[in-house]
Design a binder for these strands. Structure first.
Lengths: 115, 115
DNA sequence: CCCGCTTGACAACAATGTTGTCAAGCGATT
DNA sequence: AATCGCTTGACAACATTGTTGTCAAGCGGG
């Protein structure tokens, strides 16, 4: 059974070590809405592996010079591209099927007519 | 006859007024490779309407807080999305045609078989 | 010849992002 | 109960970035 990558696991100090960032930086990212770690009932942040990945993505982008507004927009664009790609794939599949059905139909029709 | 939007038309002072920016800012954008105005044989920058549009796009992006590294990446992503969309449209069209042809063929086959 | 623009370079200044420090609070261990 | 180690949010210091302004030098048209 695979572990759920959205499971809240790490407190901020651990998360900070994992991604090699300052805890204060992670808090700021959350304030800006870039990462949304879960919270315990005691208001302690808990980062999931997904959250960690997202932090690393932010790290890559700021590493090439983007500021946080840019990071936000780029991440959203990438997300939009991904869903677009997914939707398209789906649509393609649907058409493919419909087409196969139509061709089947015509083939059958041709066959019965020939008989 | 429509004017070519890539025709070099405006010197930097005019371009700066058109987009309401400082000439020095435009020079910096060029240094960073964000805009590429043409040059006269005397090394004077000449901005086309396309260049002007690009400046305005940069303006919009910095206006919502992006820095120039972010602007560069976002513009490239948008461009990539656009070409992707275009390619896809083309591919769709191609398949559509091929399909229509196949269906035609089957219809004809069915018809001749029935006769 | 001079005026008005161009060129590139440098400085001033505000804004941004990271890091560090602070006081206060909570929970587990002693 | 006292202490230790973490958490919380807030504030300051600092380097970096982007815009604007100023500068000297050069070119072309009136």
């Amino acid at each position: 059974m695979r572990r759920d990558s959205s499971e809240p696991l790490y407190v901020i100090s651990v998360a900070a070590k994992l991604v090699d960032m300052h805890p204060q930086t992670l808090r700021m990212y959350e304030r800006l809405g870039l990462v949304k770690p879960a919270r315990t009932e005691n208001n302690i942040r808990l980062y999931s592996d997904e959250d960690i990945d997202r932090c690393r993505q932010i790290q890559r982008l700021t590493g090439v010079g983007l500021n946080l507004a840019g990071v936000e927009m780029v991440l959203e664009l990438l997300q939009r591209m991904e869903t677009m790609r997914r939707d398209l794939e789906e649509e393609m599949e649907r058409r493919e099927e419909e087409l196969a059905r139509e061709i089947q139909r015509l083939r059958r029709e041709a066959a019965t007519a020939r008989r």
